[in-house]
Design a protein around this nucleic acid. Structure first.
Lengths: 141, 141
DNA sequence: AACATTTTGCAACATAGTTGCAATAGTGTA
DNA sequence: TACACTATTGCAACTATGTTGCAAAATGTT
């Protein structure tokens, strides 16, 4: 796991630092998307708030994580699959937010369907966010 | 116009106040969605920041406006069509954000397409936000 | 080990949004 | 129209979120 994280950082051309390792680790530990506050909770007081902001920004720039827009306008981050590289970002899957446990999931294999735009409108990016109850919460009940 | 706004407020069971009239007016004047800051600019110093927050919240509760999630996570509001009523909200159209002029539009007649959810996931709401260049910016170039 | 380059932490700041409470304005009734 | 009741507003203070500059510390390279 440790090695997997170090490899990913190296592959992205980033130097190996404690905060980057720990923050990446938090994404591998949980398998849902994380808000800034979640990460702050996870790493505790080990690192400064500012460092977390900057690290997340770096990860987004390098294509390691991507942001997910949510209806309640909280910033949420999730790991990108290997096909994502710096700048060129293949994030065309549907995202799911559970109203019950409040977690955000990437539905990796559900592709955002095409929509026909009105004349004059050119689409470059499409975000689709579905809310409801996730499989974990459904199984519990 | 004045009368139209007063009728809308009455129909929603709200008392007629200067701030509500002015804020509703800003939505009728511009025909794109508005961020809190846009409204603050429009109404100037006539009303307190807090009043604008509370008024927008009231309008959302009553189904007069709806919020739109944006990829850069700014809160944006737009007028609901008449079919929207308090609590019961028919907001199943696609939203469009222009990367050039930065305005947000409701594509009222473009319905969000259906997507098949993985087993265990139940969808109650689907948001679809398209980014690109709007028809106004395309015509200009 | 020594150096140049990144990264981090701190402090200070900027913006966004919330809450309690007293003052004010709107509404229905006489 | 005047009154009383209720709803709304403004103020102040606060919390949360995010940003910037700069010096100190850690990283990578030789």
């Amino acid at each position: 796991m440790e090695q997997k994280i170090i490899d990913l950082l190296k592959r992205s051309g980033l130097s190996i630092t404690d905060s980057r390792k720990k923050i990446l680790d938090s994404f591998f530990q949980k398998n849902s998307a994380l808000a800034h506050a979640d990460i702050e909770d996870y790493v505790g007081t080990d690192f400064d708030r500012v460092t977390i902001y900057r690290t997340l920004q770096t990860f987004v720039d390098k294509g390691i994580i991507h942001t997910i827009p949510t209806p309640d306008n909280a910033v949420v981050y999730a790991l990108c699959k290997d096909s994502c590289s710096a700048g060129h970002h293949h994030d065309n899957h549907v995202h799911f937010i559970c109203d019950n446990c409040n977690k955000t999931f990437c539905l990796e294999h559900i592709v955002v369907p095409a929509v026909k735009m009105p004349t004059g409108f050119n689409a470059t990016q499409i975000d689709m966010v579905v809310s409801g109850v996730c499989n974990f919460c459904n199984n519990v009940s």
